[in-house]
Nucleic acid binder design. Structure first.
Lengths: 172, 172
DNA sequence: CGGTTCCCTTGTCAACCGACCAGTAACGTT
DNA sequence: AACGTTACTGGTCGGTTGACAAGGGAACCG
């Protein structure tokens, strides 16, 4: 619900209701809304994590950027809520943004630096271009359906997007 | 404020306060919060509009995709709030999303279809790849600063991003 | 001059928000 | 059997939300 409606839009009562509990119990386990949000972030990044680790574990296969990129796009298609978390928190210079960067984004960015062959372009520029190109269509799926008639949850559309991103950023 | 904090996060009282008026007056001119949001959307897309119309007015220069793309990236750098509006509204299948698509996005997408040479890829795939790659870094500027040390408001960073997007999507 | 319209202020409303509290039941330990 | 810890319930707190109502007052018009 944090990913769906943002931090402000998600109320602890509705979150508790969807989990078939009460708001009192929620604040018992997570004293503040912010702690609940951090737990949700840990959970959601825990889902995305393996999608990276499987394709870039360590060792000789480490520099195969194509498979990493394919896994990244497919993970975004399957779990667009991760992108929502990032965009929602990344806009403001507050505690939530700093926590998300330090605990989840920085390690992943370091991982990206390992795989990326920047080819003269600074890594930050490439990183955000890749992330944006890979995620946006899945993030605004309802809009995409109405605007273009294409359904981002359609496997064929996902494949087409994977192919485009691969062609753009690996040149093949 | 709608772009900064989302529809739910922005309160009519704070909006009125920033405009040096009261919430009562705001609801007088815009009976519902949704009407106020639509007016804000019209305003913000009115800013972005000329950035398109100047580079792709009509006639012979219409198919010069490079200049259109450059203008698009620079407009996103100067006015990241437009992207916020789109992402914030595009997630849910509700009235706001439909209104934004029908009144602002659909005309712009049609304009994109005029200029784009899809080269075998469906326009929707290219459209969202371009939009995401062009906008994300400016949309999450605070996060980018902390994560990478680069400041997306720095003209040099903007130029680098323009160059990368042009190279990716026009192949030059 | 009186009346009408429009802009704006002030105050109020029910609903909802996150946080907090007292009380209770379950459960293993001693 | 008594105890202490943990899990959980129901309710309440001050504060904020969007929407609404009542009224003032200036400008304009006949």
């Amino acid at each position: 619900m944090f990913a769906e409606r943002g931090f402000d839009g998600a109320s602890t009562r509705l979150i508790a209701a969807r989990a078939d509990t009460t708001q009192g119990l929620a604040t018992y386990h997570f004293p503040t809304k912010e702690e609940l949000w951090r737990a949700a972030a840990d959970h959601v990044f825990g889902i995305l994590g393996p999608a990276f680790d499987d394709v870039a574990p360590s060792g000789e296969a480490r520099r195969d950027g194509r498979e990493v990129l394919r896994g990244f796009v497919e993970a975004n298609a399957a779990h667009p809520e991760v992108f929502h978390f990032i965009v929602d928190a990344g806009r403001h210079d507050d505690d939530r943004m700093r926590w998300l960067v330090d605990h989840h984004l920085a390690p992943r960015f370091a991982q990206f630096l390992d795989v990326d062959d920047s080819a003269g372009v600074h890594a930050a520029t490439r990183y955000y271009a890749i992330a944006g190109a890979s995620s946006l269509i899945f993030s605004v799926a309802p809009e995409c359906r109405r605007l273009t008639g294409h359904d981002p949850s359609d496997p064929a559309v996902i494949d087409a997007h994977v192919d485009l991103v691969l062609r753009l950023f690996t040149g093949s």
